[in-house]
Design a protein around this nucleic acid. Structure first.
Length: 957
DNA sequence: ACCGCCGGGTGCC
DNA sequence: ACCGCCGGGTGCC
């Protein structure tokens, strides 16, 4: 007993009180410790140094058991009072198995503490031993540390076996790694080619849906009929939430649950992953499907009980609250109201917070207790009938819900094939609310979609947890049907005191879940701490860069044992990145089990998943006018000379900013001459003082003409008597004059800290002063591209004056220029760009999507405004005013209108100026698509080289 | 007997 | 632990 207190007596867990019922708390604390101890940010590039046979001692003091071939974790215990070199051995669940024998531990401690190597263990034999057992240790690390480690161990009498060793009974990945190590010197493995890996990843998420999945009708409260593929998704999601199938790589062997990858087994059923990854392409209706899931799948497969406006008038909550004696909260016996579920959310705050979550109780159960419970014949369990009663009370039916107490479900031994429903305890049944976390940019979309898809007569409590005055009451939040918040709120609301971490959620949904792929961010850490029964990730792109992106997602889903980084690294990530085919297969199996992905082009039974209206894309070549052509050629020749010189000197990359500025200038000239001279980078390229002055004036004119109320950064009011500095910032003349007179020679621009002088302030020439607030139509000039657009718009209007168009440009300033002719021709328009507040954005989108007569017919859209998920299906025509570097950006933009819900054919027009940088950009776009595909694993130098060749191609050098 | 041998007590780090 | 180690009991064969 005395020694037990030291089981966790190391590192930051020293103060844990282990005298009180230590058996109940150890597992969770230990796995936390292991998790913390094995924070290995990047196991990539590790090579195998060698193997070593070691001994685990002290088996009889610990409860952790291992199977033949099982992987074990090795954790340093620097605070161990008997030996500060102690190395603990633990199994996958964090149960301690024993210690490494002290002489070996002393040698290992040095290696481990100095991060010279990562040591991993596999037990092949002696698993039934009472006192000691052999363990095969492998040492992994950076190539350059290899010899140090080998020498270090040798000095202490431990010779690392650097050849492959036939490890009888070793698990698959290890034996194959051993074989590889044998066949190759220096432990370097032959990876799959970048191509193969890339293909593998592509296929990782393809064809994940078997057609056997049925369709499920949504609850009545879902107002929008689901499309067939959405019903399939709903059916799949409900099944993932309700069925108790084991997580991938777990199987039942006799009385035990066995993990086929790590060879770990336990009496307890592994935590089931109730949820998964819905990775459908954007536009297939992930949001709608999720809303349908919320309404359709409450407890025991029943719909969410909701208040309706018709029928019974008295609100269910009010009625049932009185019927429910508080003392029954615990087991729910005797509840007879159909609406018990809605009532359960109204329990006092204290009860919620004090109650053990199912999560905690299941992990904190000691082996001894489990045994005790398990030995009880299930039919004698006193709680069984009560739970049935409760289930009946809730759902009006006796389901096959089995007795479940503290997770040790030992109802009639569930067989793998039958997939019985997951039994829920009374504790589980209290959870009501679904928490949705999304990026700010799609927040309004969620609200809209709830508005749109929930039947009008249903009152769903949706709370937006956002803004400084958000309601932080956990009781309040628990009682909602849905709580929506953003990732930013999550990271700022992070601490333990955040109510989001106190509420016992029914379900947590991460929209655009790939956002949490970096485990080091605050929000990723926050996301792991939710108490929730079911967890979902919605993401069109679950893998963005590499396998590593998946770990955080699996950790969020509590997919055992991969929620602990070490097991993920050992079993999946390292084998895969080293090109091990088995590792890749395992990864594929894993992903397949928990993911549903369809694309717009997916087919089911030979028929397309969704039939979107046709989309046509045409390129309209624009001829520059003679004046424009002259100006363009001038700039082009100048740019060519400059860039040509950089190319000759080999300094393209060090002058990259300037090169981009030159290209930018040309691209802008293709659109409209007035786009020039608007940023200080452009100004840097101006040759003469006269030219500079001209451009500054131009810039000033643009600022003032843009209609936005330009603010003076000194007085914080609208600028009066505007002047512009050489660094292209605009102030009131009196304000900036005062700054300069105060600071004298050392005066600096308040915005960018460039030096400023009174003599260098530029103001409007006298004759233009009067016009700045006027219609400025006299100063406004057209361009060939503007005319091309207007011709199209006017033609369309004459065909059908309700046709709506998106007019897209990368240059918000171009959008501003376009406003003038739109106004002149009487087009009603709205504008959406990245600078707008959420509120304004929402309003603009609503206005545009509205079918009212007064609704605007044109949206001026900046290419990158908003993110994925933006729904602009009211438009059926898209005008892309200028080509983007990345064709995917254009595609994404087009998809905002060519997506589910689009009723008309979509017509896309790309304006490209003939004989210009734009034409070359289009050529490069095509090449880029290939490049991007090959970029997988390509080196930095490759990319740089391609960058340079891009530029040469653009300038026709 | 300043040894060897026997057998009981004992046991991770 | 069906070991090794420790230390007390014992002492020809």
């Amino acid at each position: 007993m005395f020694s037990n207190r030291w089981r966790f007596g190391w590192d930051r867990y020293t103060e844990v009180d282990l005298f009180t019922d230590h058996n109940d708390t150890n597992a969770e604390t230990l796995s936390q410790a292991i998790r913390a101890a094995s924070e290995e940010p990047d196991a990539d590039g590790s090579v195998l140094f060698g193997h070593l046979q070691g001994t685990v001692v002290g088996l009889r003091y610990y409860t952790g058991v291992v199977n033949s071939g099982e992987m074990v974790g090795l954790v340093r215990q620097p605070q161990n009072p008997y030996d500060r070199n102690a190395v603990m051995v633990a199994n996958i669940y964090g149960n301690q198995v024993g210690h490494i024998k002290k002489e070996l531990a002393a040698a290992m401690a040095y290696v481990m503490d100095n991060k010279l190597a990562k040591v991993e263990g596999v037990v092949h034999s002696g698993t039934k031993n009472k006192f000691t057992m052999p363990v095969m240790l492998s040492f992994w690390g950076k190539e350059e540390k290899k010899n140090t480690v080998i020498e270090m161990m040798a000095r202490r009498g431990y010779k690392l076996n650097t050849g492959g060793i036939g490890q009888a009974g070793s698990n698959q990945s290890h034996s194959s790694q051993g074989a590889r190590a044998l066949s190759l010197k220096k432990g370097v493995t032959i990876p799959l080619t970048a191509e193969e890996l890339k293909n593998a990843f592509d296929n990782l998420f393809e064809g994940l849906m078997e057609s056997k999945d049925g369709e499920k009708e949504a609850a009545k409260s879902v107002g929008t009929p689901l499309l067939p593929h959405q019903k399939k998704a709903l059916s799949w999601m409900c099944a993932r939430e309700n069925k108790s199938g084991l997580p991938p790589f777990w199987e039942k062997r006799g009385e035990l649950y066995y993990n086929t990858l790590t060879c770990f087994s336990a009496k307890e059923i592994p935590e089931r992953v109730r949820g998964g990854i819905l990775a459908d392409d954007m536009g297939l209706g992930k949001t709608l499907t999720t809303i349908a899931l919320i309404l359709t799948n409450f407890h025991n497969g029943k719909p969410l009980p909701v208040e309706t406006c018709e029928g019974q008038s008295s609100p269910l909550k009010a009625r049932t609250k009185k019927q429910m004696p508080p003392k029954l909260e615990g087991d729910g016996a005797g509840v007879s109201s159909r609406a018990a579920a809605s009532l359960r959310t109204d329990i006092p705050q204290a009860e919620v917070t004090c109650a053990h979550t199912p999560d905690e109780s299941e992990k904190s159960i000691s082996k001894g207790k489990i045994k005790a419970i398990k030995r009880k014949p299930s039919k004698d369990a006193p709680g069984f009938q009560e739970d049935l009663d409760f289930a009946a009370a809730l759902g009006g039916l006796i389901s096959d819900t089995g007795f479940k107490k503290k997770k040790t479900s030992k109802k009639a031994t569930p067989t793998l094939s039958s997939d019985p429903s997951i039994p829920e305890s009374a504790e589980d049944l209290k959870a009501r609310a679904t928490l949705i976390i999304c990026p700010l940019s799609v927040l309004s979309n969620w609200l809209d979609q709830f508005e749109q898809h929930v039947s009008a007569n249903v009152k769903l409590n949706v709370y937006l947890y956002y803004g400084s005055d958000r309601n932080r009451s956990t009781k309040f939040l628990s009682s909602q049907d849905v709580v929506i918040t953003t990732y930013n709120i999550l990271s700022s609301d992070n601490g333990d005191k955040s109510p989001l971490h106190v509420v016992n959620w029914l379900r947590v949904v991460l929209d655009e879940g790939h956002i949490i792929r970096n485990p080091d961010t605050l929000m990723s850490k926050a996301v792991l701490r939710f108490k929730a029964q079911r967890r979902w990730i919605l993401s069109g792109t679950p893998i963005q860069n590499s396998v590593k992106d998946l770990w955080m997602l699996l950790a969020f889903l509590h997919l055992k044992p991969f929620d602990v980084r070490e097991w993920w690294n050992r079993v999946i990530q390292r084998p895969v990145t080293q090109g091990n085919k088995e590792g890749l297969q395992n990864l594929q199996t894993l992903v397949k089990c928990i993911t549903l992905r369809r694309t717009k082009n997916s087919e089911v039974n030979g028929r397309p998943l969704v039939s979107l209206p046709e989309k046509t894309v045409c390129v309209e070549k624009v001829e520059l006018s003679q004046a424009e052509r002259e100006e363009y050629e001038l700039a082009r020749n100048e740019g060519r000379n400059t860039i040509g010189r950089y190319v000759a000197e080999g300094t393209v990359l060090s002058n990259y900013a300037h090169v981009l500025a030159i290209l930018m200038r040309l691209r802008q000239l293709c659109c409209h001459p007035d786009l020039l001279a608007k940023t200080s980078t452009d100004l840097g390229a101006a040759a003469t003082p006269a030219e500079l002055r001209e451009r500054l004036i131009e810039k000033l004119r643009m600022v003032l003409a843009s209609g936005s109320d330009e603010e003076c950064s000194v007085c914080l009011e609208s600028v009066r008597l505007p002047v512009i500095t050489h660094c292209a910032h605009v102030y009131c003349r009196p304000c900036i004059a005062q700054v300069i007179s105060t600071e004298k020679e050392t005066a600096r621009c308040p915005l960018c800290r460039s030096e400023i002088k009174t003599s260098e302030l530029v103001e409007f020439p006298q004759e233009e002063m009067g016009e700045e607030n006027g219609t400025n139509s006299e100063k406004w000039r057209t361009s060939s591209k503007v005319q091309a657009l207007m011709a199209n718009l006017l033609r369309l209007r004459s065909e059908d004056n309700r046709i709506k168009c998106l007019v897209v440009s990368q240059f918000t300033r171009f959008l501003t220029i376009l406003e003038t002719p739109l106004r002149e021709h009487g087009f009603s328009y709205v504008r959406l760009d990245g600078t707008m507040s959420l509120k304004k954005r929402t309003q603009v989108i609503q206005e545009f999507q509205s079918s009212a007569d007064s609704s605007p017919v044109i949206m001026l859209l900046s290419l990158k405004a908003g993110g994925v998920g933006l729904n602009l299906t009211a438009a059926s025509h898209v005008f892309l005013m200028d080509p983007a570097w990345n064709p995917a950006t254009e595609e994404q933009c087009i998809d905002r209108c060519h997506r589910l819900g689009q009723k008309r054919k979509v017509c896309v027009t790309k304006f490209i100026v003939k004989d210009s940088v734009e034409e070359n950009m289009v050529k490069i776009q095509k090449k880029k698509q290939d490049l991007l595909e090959k970029a997988f694993g390509s080196t930095n130098t490759d990319r740089k080289a391609s960058r340079i060749s891009d530029i040469k191609a653009l300038m026709e050098l």
